[in-house]
Design a binder for these strands. Sequence first.
DNA 1: CATATATAGTTTGACATCAAACTAAAATCA
DNA 2: TGATTTTAGTTTGATGTCAAACTATATATG
Lengths: 140, 140
Amino acid sequence: MKTRDVISLISRIRQKVNGFIVSELSHSGIDGIVVSHGDIIYALFQNQKMTMAEIADKISKDKSTVTALINKLVRLGYVTKERDTGDSRVVYVTLTSNGYELKPIFEAISHKVLEVFYLNISQEEKEELIRILSKIDQNL
Amino acid sequence: MKTRDVISLISRIRQKVNGFIVSELSHSGIDGIVVSHGDIIYALFQNQKMTMAEIADKISKDKSTVTALINKLVRLGYVTKERDTGDSRVVYVTLTSNGYELKPIFEAISHKVLEVFYLNISQEEKEELIRILSKIDQNL
DNA sequence: CATATATAGTTTGACATCAAACTAAAATCA
DNA sequence: TGATTTTAGTTTGATGTCAAACTATATATG
């Protein structure tokens, strides 16, 4: 019984975290963005310039999904697309200044989420959790 | 770093498990069903007769989502809907015989998923994992 | 009792998501 | 070099998902 429970538990936690993040974004006046958009922006903080394929790989979404997500971020003014001059199949995505301005907000939210997430969880427990989850991740 | 990782880890595991389940269902000749449908059917194995609201609550989905999911399950012949004779707002959902026939298949898949999921995870680790995840679930 | 409020589900519109088909360009290779 | 294959992205169609508006019925309240 516990066994099957662990999967619902994981689903539920993920869903709550996503809800939490979207709600926090909304509180910061950032609307119309879902976690996948956040993942893309987050990835671009670390990698100024990424191709569509790199983004798809990074956020584990289908490339056609990424097309839609990026088009929305373009519409919202957070990123721009430009074709590679050498290989014109390739599209590079970069943050606009509006996009960069999200960084401190994202960091604050990230911090806040983890604060709630890890409330009353000791350092040993955190490490144990990540260790076990990593093993499971590799199993699958 | 590890901190934010744990959330991607959880998302990734959930995604892999979902993919695994859908793939297994497909191997058993059951197509056009996603995990949410599975969750509903699973819930109905334990509770022969449920209202739409009960199902929504059980699988943590919006009631309008449940309307769509149930309509699909009706179309596929796995469940039936009928209105309460007393309170005609209420709709009861029950499994058809076709639906019941899924039970052994679901059990086999559930078993198989957990076998892979928990490969090389000791009993202590399982318990520790569930204990920590339950705390996190309550934090959120 | 009549009006107001609450409740159960459905409908509608928007959007994330995927898979499959498609387009265009690059790389391979014969 | 010309044909084939591979690669990067987009488009299209289907579907799950949610929130908000809506319908219909039941309950509460004056």
